[in-house]
Design a protein around this nucleic acid. Structure first.
Length: 270
DNA sequence: TAGATTTGACCCAC
DNA sequence: GTGGGTCAAATCTA
């Protein structure tokens, strides 16, 4: 009987995929991982001969209140209690890992028990699955209140990440995670003139910088393509979010969204 | 029934 | 030797 561990051999050639990805990456300093747009640190890559050591893997760190909110589809594959950490570390990999040999993975580590809690998200490898990031998995547009004219209200929550807010909420409950479930970080409303009205969803003295996006323009990036894998149900939400907006950029939390001239580039983001 | 998550065990970098 | 990262069977959910 062969050891079950031999199944590991059946996975795709990780080293080859790594080599391919590194070959695709521009050698110049203009290399911009997803975190580049998301305001996270540059990769700590220091390639050595032969095999990649863990610490040699390209990785970058993001601190966020919304660890699931990066527009990609992730599949959780592990969870571990970490020494000297009060919170478990969650391991995710790209849902397209096998389909498209996408090496991207991330570790989510809660850093404190604040309300909302801060998470440290460590990304490893860029996405090679060529899926368009869906930046608003947990942005919900609400119809205008009767007394609010034609203004739309946008609620920014933290329960998103896998596309379906309902489903994520169910997952959050299943995992007994208190992470700001159902509680918006902030609320934005737009009127028909694309004027922005920003309303922190919690007291201003608790308002974290990352949850106070400098929405100077009233714009949003183009919606994800309707062919988007696994995220088709987001489109209506996106359309609502985009209502009345057509400028050149927007920023949500630490996530910056750029206009049409960013065609995805080498790294799915600009 | 298929796909996602949980969780204990294993592997390996440090 | 230890702790972190990953695997995969079991379990859960829609």
């Amino acid at each position: 009987m062969a050891s079950p561990r031999l199944k590991r051999e059946q996975s795709f050639d990780f080293e080859e995929a790594i080599s391919t990805q590194e070959a695709m990456r521009p050698a110049s300093a203009s290399y911009s991982p997803p975190g580049g747009a998301f305001g996270i640190s540059p990769p700590e890559s220091s390639p050595r001969d032969g095999r990649k050591r863990r610490k040699d893997r390209p990785s970058w760190v993001n601190h966020t209140f919304t660890p699931h909110f990066d527009g990609h589809l992730w599949r959780k594959y592990g969870q571990k209690n970490i020494k000297d950490s009060a919170f478990p570390r969650l391991y995710y990999r790209c849902s397209y890992r096998e389909d498209r040999q996408c090496l991207a993975s991330k570790l989510v580590q809660q850093e404190n028990d604040d309300d909302p809690p801060m998470f440290k998200v460590t990304y490893t490898y860029e996405h090679t699955c060529n899926t368009t990031p869906v930046p608003t998995p947990d942005v919900v547009a609400e119809p205008p209140a009767t007394s609010a004219g034609d203004a739309y209200l946008l609620r920014f929550g933290s329960a998103g990440g896998h596309g379906d807010p309902e489903q994520m909420d169910q997952r959050e409950r299943q995992q007994h995670r208190p992470a700001a479930r159902g509680r918006p970080f902030m609320m934005l409303s737009f009127d028909s003139n694309s004027h922005l009205h920003e309303q922190p969803a919690f007291p201003s003295d608790q308002l974290p910088a990352a949850a106070s996006p400098p929405f100077t323009a009233d714009a949003l990036p183009p919606p994800p393509p309707s062919t988007m894998d696994g995220g088709g149900d987001l489109l209506s939400t996106w359309d609502s979010f985009r209502y009345g907006l057509d400028d050149d950029h927007a920023q949500i939390g630490s996530h910056v969204y750029l206009p049409d001239n960013c065609n995805g580039g080498d790294d799915n983001y600009c």
